[in-house]
Protein backbone atom coordinates (compact mmCIF):
# COMPACT_ATOMS: atom_id res chain seq x y z
CA UNK A 1 0.00 0.00 0.00
CA UNK A 2 1.09 3.50 -0.63
CA UNK A 3 1.61 5.83 2.30
CA UNK A 4 -1.43 7.73 1.13
CA UNK A 5 -3.59 4.62 1.37
CA UNK A 6 -2.13 3.85 4.79
CA UNK A 7 -3.01 7.33 5.84
CA UNK A 8 -6.55 6.98 4.56
CA UNK A 9 -6.96 3.64 6.31
CA UNK A 10 -5.72 4.98 9.62
CA UNK A 11 -7.87 8.06 9.24
CA UNK A 12 -10.87 5.89 8.55
CA UNK A 13 -10.19 3.64 11.52
CA UNK A 14 -9.70 6.66 13.72
CA UNK A 15 -12.86 8.27 12.49
CA UNK A 16 -15.14 5.25 12.76
CA UNK A 17 -13.42 3.91 15.89
CA UNK A 18 -13.63 7.28 17.58
CA UNK A 19 -17.24 7.69 16.56
CA UNK A 20 -17.95 4.23 17.92
CA UNK A 21 -16.34 4.94 21.28
CA UNK A 22 -18.07 8.29 21.66
CA UNK A 23 -21.36 6.64 20.77
CA UNK A 24 -20.72 3.89 23.34
CA UNK A 25 -20.08 6.46 26.05
CA UNK A 26 -23.10 8.52 25.13
CA UNK A 27 -25.20 5.39 24.97
CA UNK A 28 -24.01 4.18 28.36
CA UNK A 29 -24.41 7.53 30.07
CA UNK A 30 -27.69 8.04 28.32
CA UNK A 31 -28.89 4.74 29.68
CA UNK A 32 -27.84 5.84 33.16
CA UNK A 33 -29.50 9.18 32.63
CA UNK A 34 -32.88 7.95 31.56
CA UNK A 35 -33.38 4.43 32.85
CA UNK A 36 -35.10 3.59 36.13
CA UNK A 37 -32.72 4.38 39.00
CA UNK A 38 -33.30 0.88 40.31
CA UNK A 39 -31.34 -0.34 37.29
CA UNK A 40 -28.70 2.38 37.43
CA UNK A 41 -27.69 4.43 40.51
CA UNK A 42 -29.24 2.02 42.96
CA UNK A 43 -27.50 -1.02 41.55
CA UNK A 44 -24.51 0.03 43.67
CA UNK A 45 -25.02 -1.01 47.28
CA UNK A 46 -23.77 2.37 48.45
CA UNK A 47 -26.91 3.88 46.91
CA UNK A 48 -29.53 1.30 47.77
CA UNK A 49 -30.31 2.91 51.12
CA UNK A 50 -30.92 6.30 49.55
CA UNK A 51 -32.97 4.72 46.80
CA UNK A 52 -35.25 2.78 49.08
CA UNK A 53 -35.89 5.80 51.28
CA UNK A 54 -36.66 7.90 48.21
CA UNK A 55 -38.92 5.16 46.85
CA UNK A 56 -41.07 5.46 49.96
CA UNK A 57 -41.07 9.23 50.05
CA UNK A 58 -43.50 11.85 48.90
CA UNK A 59 -41.04 12.66 46.14
CA UNK A 60 -40.98 9.14 44.73
CA UNK A 61 -42.60 10.31 41.51
CA UNK A 62 -39.85 12.87 40.99
CA UNK A 63 -36.91 11.27 39.21
CA UNK A 64 -33.37 11.50 40.60
CA UNK A 65 -32.22 13.67 37.74
CA UNK A 66 -34.95 16.23 38.29
CA UNK A 67 -33.16 17.37 41.44
CA UNK A 68 -29.67 15.93 41.23
CA UNK A 69 -29.00 16.28 37.53
CA UNK A 70 -28.34 13.09 35.63
CA UNK A 71 -25.25 11.24 34.56
CA UNK A 72 -24.91 13.42 31.46
CA UNK A 73 -23.14 15.91 33.68
CA UNK A 74 -19.89 17.76 33.39
CA UNK A 75 -19.72 18.33 37.15
CA UNK A 76 -16.13 17.49 38.02
CA UNK A 77 -16.92 16.66 41.63
CA UNK A 78 -19.60 14.18 40.65
CA UNK A 79 -17.31 12.41 38.19
CA UNK A 80 -14.43 12.37 40.63
CA UNK A 81 -16.49 11.06 43.52
CA UNK A 82 -18.03 8.36 41.34
CA UNK A 83 -14.63 7.16 40.19
CA UNK A 84 -13.35 7.27 43.77
CA UNK A 85 -16.29 5.16 44.88
CA UNK A 86 -15.70 2.57 42.19
CA UNK A 87 -12.02 2.32 43.15
CA UNK A 88 -12.91 1.95 46.82
CA UNK A 89 -15.52 -0.64 45.96
CA UNK A 90 -13.02 -2.87 44.23
CA UNK A 91 -10.13 -2.31 46.65
CA UNK A 92 -12.34 -3.18 49.62
CA UNK A 93 -11.80 0.19 51.27
CA UNK A 94 -14.67 1.33 53.41
CA UNK A 95 -16.71 3.71 51.34
CA UNK A 96 -16.92 7.23 52.59
CA UNK A 97 -20.44 8.23 53.56
CA UNK A 98 -22.16 9.95 50.67
CA UNK A 99 -22.74 13.63 51.29
CA UNK A 100 -23.91 16.38 49.05
CA UNK A 101 -21.59 19.34 48.78
CA UNK A 102 -23.03 22.68 49.66
CA UNK A 103 -23.23 23.73 46.02
CA UNK A 104 -25.33 20.67 45.30
CA UNK A 105 -27.59 21.48 48.21
CA UNK A 106 -28.07 24.97 46.83
CA UNK A 107 -28.79 23.48 43.44
CA UNK A 108 -31.48 21.30 44.98
CA UNK A 109 -32.83 24.31 46.77
CA UNK A 110 -33.39 25.95 43.38
CA UNK A 111 -35.12 22.81 42.16
CA UNK A 112 -37.57 23.01 45.06
CA UNK A 113 -38.73 26.40 43.87
CA UNK A 114 -39.87 24.95 40.55
CA UNK A 115 -42.59 22.83 42.13
CA UNK A 116 -43.20 24.79 45.34
CA UNK A 117 -43.20 28.40 44.17
CA UNK A 118 -45.46 29.71 46.93
CA UNK A 119 -43.51 28.15 49.78
CA UNK A 120 -40.33 29.39 48.17
CA UNK A 121 -41.66 32.91 47.84
CA UNK A 122 -42.78 32.87 51.47
CA UNK A 123 -39.34 31.71 52.53
CA UNK A 124 -37.72 34.43 50.44
CA UNK A 125 -39.75 37.03 52.24
CA UNK A 126 -38.87 35.61 55.64
CA UNK A 127 -35.83 36.14 57.81
CA UNK A 128 -34.78 32.57 57.10
CA UNK A 129 -33.69 33.61 53.60
CA UNK A 130 -30.76 35.42 55.19
CA UNK A 131 -27.37 35.20 53.52
CA UNK A 132 -23.76 34.52 54.39
CA UNK A 133 -22.94 38.22 54.24
CA UNK A 134 -25.74 39.18 56.62
CA UNK A 135 -24.90 36.47 59.16
CA UNK A 136 -21.13 36.40 59.15
CA UNK A 137 -20.09 39.96 58.31
CA UNK A 138 -22.11 41.88 60.87
CA UNK A 139 -19.43 44.00 62.57
CA UNK A 140 -21.54 44.62 65.65
CA UNK A 141 -22.09 40.90 66.15
CA UNK A 142 -18.48 39.99 65.43
CA UNK A 143 -17.22 42.59 67.85
CA UNK A 144 -19.08 40.94 70.74
CA UNK A 145 -18.74 37.35 69.59
CA UNK A 146 -16.47 36.25 66.79
CA UNK A 147 -17.69 33.60 64.34
CA UNK A 148 -16.97 30.03 65.38
CA UNK A 149 -17.64 26.56 64.05
CA UNK A 150 -20.69 26.34 66.27
CA UNK A 151 -22.35 29.04 64.12
CA UNK A 152 -22.50 26.42 61.39
CA UNK A 153 -24.95 24.41 63.45
CA UNK A 154 -27.69 26.83 62.38
CA UNK A 155 -26.19 28.86 59.54
CA UNK A 156 -24.31 27.40 56.60
CA UNK A 157 -24.83 23.91 58.00
CA UNK A 158 -23.83 22.27 54.73
CA UNK A 159 -20.33 23.72 54.83
CA UNK A 160 -17.61 21.19 55.53
CA UNK A 161 -14.78 23.57 56.36
CA UNK A 162 -13.41 25.18 59.44
CA UNK A 163 -14.92 28.60 60.06
CA UNK A 164 -11.54 30.21 59.43
CA UNK A 165 -11.82 29.09 55.81
CA UNK A 166 -15.17 30.85 55.52
CA UNK A 167 -14.61 34.16 57.26
CA UNK A 168 -11.42 36.19 57.44
CA UNK A 169 -10.80 38.41 60.41
CA UNK A 170 -10.09 42.07 59.73
CA UNK A 171 -6.36 42.45 59.18
CA UNK A 172 -6.28 45.44 61.54
CA UNK A 173 -8.57 47.39 63.81
CA UNK A 174 -9.99 49.49 60.99
CA UNK A 175 -10.52 46.67 58.50
CA UNK A 176 -13.73 44.79 57.99
CA UNK A 177 -14.67 41.13 58.15
CA UNK A 178 -14.59 39.38 54.80
CA UNK A 179 -15.82 36.17 53.26
CA UNK A 180 -12.90 34.31 51.75
CA UNK A 181 -15.10 33.44 48.80
CA UNK A 182 -16.96 36.65 47.86
CA UNK A 183 -19.42 34.66 45.74
CA UNK A 184 -20.90 33.27 48.93
CA UNK A 185 -22.12 36.66 50.06
CA UNK A 186 -25.61 36.33 48.61
CA UNK A 187 -25.98 32.59 49.13
CA UNK A 188 -28.65 31.54 51.61
CA UNK A 189 -27.42 30.09 54.91
CA UNK A 190 -30.71 28.35 55.71
CA UNK A 191 -31.73 26.65 52.46
CA UNK A 192 -34.76 24.37 52.11
CA UNK A 193 -32.74 21.33 53.10
CA UNK A 194 -31.91 22.82 56.50
CA UNK A 195 -35.40 21.93 57.71
CA UNK A 196 -36.57 19.47 55.06
CA UNK A 197 -35.54 15.97 54.34
CA UNK A 198 -36.50 15.60 50.71
CA UNK A 199 -36.44 11.81 50.85
CA UNK A 200 -38.50 11.68 54.03
CA UNK A 201 -41.40 9.25 54.26
CA UNK A 202 -44.62 10.44 52.72
CA UNK A 203 -46.48 11.32 55.94
CA UNK A 204 -46.58 15.10 56.01
CA UNK A 205 -45.37 15.43 59.59
CA UNK A 206 -42.16 13.65 58.72
CA UNK A 207 -41.14 15.95 55.90
CA UNK A 208 -39.79 18.30 58.53
CA UNK A 209 -36.37 17.38 59.80
CA UNK A 210 -33.26 19.11 60.94
CA UNK A 211 -29.97 18.83 59.14
CA UNK A 212 -27.42 18.09 61.83
CA UNK A 213 -24.17 19.72 60.82
CA UNK A 214 -22.08 17.58 63.17
CA UNK A 215 -23.55 14.27 62.12
CA UNK A 216 -23.86 15.29 58.43
CA UNK A 217 -27.36 13.87 58.37
CA UNK A 218 -31.00 14.84 58.54
CA UNK A 219 -32.81 13.90 61.70
CA UNK A 220 -36.55 13.64 61.16
CA UNK A 221 -38.59 15.89 63.41
CA UNK A 222 -40.17 13.02 65.30
CA UNK A 223 -36.71 11.80 66.35
CA UNK A 224 -35.54 15.21 67.53
CA UNK A 225 -35.55 15.80 71.27
CA UNK A 226 -38.49 17.49 72.90
CA UNK A 227 -36.52 19.91 75.02
CA UNK A 228 -37.54 20.37 78.60
CA UNK A 229 -37.85 24.07 79.40
CA UNK A 230 -37.90 25.34 82.96
CA UNK A 231 -39.05 28.61 84.42
CA UNK A 232 -37.15 28.62 87.69
CA UNK A 233 -37.98 25.21 89.08
CA UNK A 234 -41.27 24.93 87.22
CA UNK A 235 -41.42 22.80 84.08
CA UNK A 236 -42.92 24.80 81.23
CA UNK A 237 -45.56 23.04 79.18
CA UNK A 238 -44.08 22.66 75.71
CA UNK A 239 -46.18 21.86 72.64
CA UNK A 240 -45.79 18.32 71.40
CA UNK A 241 -45.97 19.43 67.76
CA UNK A 242 -42.97 17.60 66.30
CA UNK A 243 -42.30 20.42 63.83
CA UNK A 244 -41.53 22.72 66.73
CA UNK A 245 -38.57 20.52 67.62
CA UNK A 246 -36.95 21.64 64.39
CA UNK A 247 -37.34 25.28 65.42
CA UNK A 248 -35.93 24.57 68.87
CA UNK A 249 -32.70 23.21 67.51
CA UNK A 250 -31.68 26.77 66.73
CA UNK A 251 -34.08 28.86 68.75
CA UNK A 252 -32.56 27.14 71.74
CA UNK A 253 -32.18 28.05 75.38
CA UNK A 254 -28.83 27.98 77.15
CA UNK A 255 -27.68 24.59 78.38
CA UNK A 256 -29.59 24.83 81.66
CA UNK A 257 -32.81 25.18 79.61
CA UNK A 258 -34.22 28.15 81.48
CA UNK A 259 -37.11 29.81 79.71
CA UNK A 260 -36.19 32.78 77.54
CA UNK A 261 -32.44 32.34 77.85
CA UNK A 262 -30.22 32.59 74.81
CA UNK A 263 -32.40 32.21 71.70
CA UNK A 264 -35.28 30.41 73.36
CA UNK A 265 -38.73 31.64 72.30
CA UNK A 266 -40.85 28.95 73.93
CA UNK A 267 -44.17 30.53 74.79
CA UNK A 268 -45.07 30.76 78.46
CA UNK A 269 -47.69 32.75 80.29
CA UNK A 270 -51.04 33.03 78.49
CA UNK A 271 -49.65 31.38 75.35
CA UNK A 272 -47.95 28.48 77.09
CA UNK A 273 -48.28 25.20 75.27
CA UNK A 274 -48.77 26.70 71.81
CA UNK A 275 -46.59 25.45 69.01
CA UNK A 276 -44.39 27.89 67.09
CA UNK A 277 -46.39 26.88 64.04
CA UNK A 278 -49.68 27.92 65.67
CA UNK A 279 -48.70 31.54 65.10
CA UNK A 280 -45.82 31.49 62.63
CA UNK A 281 -46.31 30.16 59.13
CA UNK A 282 -43.99 27.35 58.22
CA UNK A 283 -42.28 29.46 55.56
CA UNK A 284 -43.53 33.00 56.04
CA UNK A 285 -42.66 33.69 59.62
CA UNK A 286 -44.62 36.83 60.20
CA UNK A 287 -47.09 36.12 62.98
CA UNK A 288 -48.84 39.49 62.85
CA UNK A 289 -51.96 38.15 61.19
CA UNK A 290 -52.22 35.04 63.28
CA UNK A 291 -53.66 36.66 66.41
CA UNK A 292 -57.00 36.77 64.60
CA UNK A 293 -57.12 33.03 64.56
CA UNK A 294 -57.89 32.92 68.26
CA UNK A 295 -58.66 36.45 69.33
CA UNK A 296 -60.86 38.04 70.40
CA UNK A 297 -62.91 34.87 70.82
CA UNK A 298 -60.37 33.21 73.04
CA UNK A 299 -59.21 36.31 74.89
CA UNK A 300 -59.22 36.01 78.62
CA UNK A 301 -59.32 39.71 79.34
CA UNK A 302 -61.54 40.78 76.53
CA UNK A 303 -59.21 43.49 75.27
CA UNK A 304 -58.26 43.95 71.68
CA UNK A 305 -54.99 42.15 71.46
CA UNK A 306 -54.11 43.63 68.10
CA UNK A 307 -53.77 46.99 69.76
CA UNK A 308 -51.36 45.73 72.39
CA UNK A 309 -47.65 46.17 72.07
CA UNK A 310 -46.94 42.52 71.49
CA UNK A 311 -43.43 42.93 70.24
CA UNK A 312 -41.05 40.09 70.85
CA UNK A 313 -38.09 42.03 69.57
CA UNK A 314 -37.83 43.91 72.80
CA UNK A 315 -37.27 41.45 75.56
CA UNK A 316 -38.19 44.22 77.98
CA UNK A 317 -41.70 44.57 76.63
CA UNK A 318 -44.22 43.71 79.31
CA UNK A 319 -46.41 42.31 76.57
CA UNK A 320 -43.79 40.16 74.92
CA UNK A 321 -46.08 37.76 73.16
CA UNK A 322 -43.90 34.80 74.06
CA UNK A 323 -44.06 35.34 77.78
CA UNK A 324 -46.93 37.69 78.58
CA UNK A 325 -48.78 36.40 81.63
CA UNK A 326 -51.86 37.62 83.43
CA UNK A 327 -49.70 38.95 86.23
CA UNK A 328 -47.87 41.26 83.85
CA UNK A 329 -50.99 43.41 83.55
CA UNK A 330 -52.55 42.50 86.89
CA UNK A 331 -49.72 42.65 89.39
CA UNK A 332 -52.23 42.96 92.21
CA UNK A 333 -53.90 39.72 91.33
CA UNK A 334 -55.99 38.34 88.56
CA UNK A 335 -59.59 39.55 88.48
CA UNK A 336 -62.48 37.27 87.70
CA UNK A 337 -62.59 36.42 84.03
CA UNK A 338 -63.65 39.49 82.05
CA UNK A 339 -66.67 39.37 79.82
CA UNK A 340 -65.89 38.72 76.20
CA UNK A 341 -66.71 41.59 73.94
CA UNK A 342 -68.57 40.13 71.07
Amino acid sequence: MTPRRWFRLLLGMGLYGGAFLVACAVGGLGYFHFANPRDTCASCHEMTGFYSVWAGSAHRTVSCRACHGGSLTLDVHALESHVDRIVRHFTGDPSKPIHLLEKHVLGLHESCSRCHPQAFADWQASQHSTTYARIFLDPEHNRTASPTNDCLRCHGMFLRDDISLLVARPPDTTGSWMLRDPLRATQPVIPCLACHQIHAPAAAMQAAGFYDHREHAHIPAYLLPLASIRQGERAVKVSRDPRQRVCMQCHAPSAAHQLGTSDDRTPAGVHEGLSCLDCHGAHAHSAAASCNTCHPADSHCGIEVQKMDTTFLSTKSAHNVHTVACLDCHPQGIPARAQLKN
Binding site: S146, T148, N149, D150, R153, S254, A255, A256
Partner: peptide, 19 residues
Amino acid sequence: GRNACVHNRYCCGFACPNN
Protein backbone atom coordinates in the same frame (compact mmCIF):
# COMPACT_ATOMS: atom_id res chain seq x y z
CA GLY B 1 -11.50 38.11 71.88
CA ARG B 2 -12.88 34.61 72.35
CA ASN B 3 -16.39 33.54 73.23
CA ALA B 4 -17.88 32.34 76.48
CA CYS B 5 -18.53 28.64 77.02
CA VAL B 6 -22.02 27.49 76.00
CA HIS B 7 -21.80 24.24 78.00
CA ASN B 8 -21.75 21.67 75.28
CA ARG B 9 -22.18 18.15 76.57
CA TYR B 10 -18.73 16.95 75.53
CA CYS B 11 -15.52 18.89 75.97
CA CYS B 12 -12.75 16.75 77.42
CA GLY B 13 -11.23 14.90 74.47
CA PHE B 14 -12.71 17.27 71.88
CA ALA B 15 -11.81 20.58 70.28
CA CYS B 16 -14.17 23.42 71.19
CA PRO B 17 -16.63 24.41 68.45
CA ASN B 18 -17.02 27.80 70.08
CA ASN B 19 -13.43 28.82 70.69
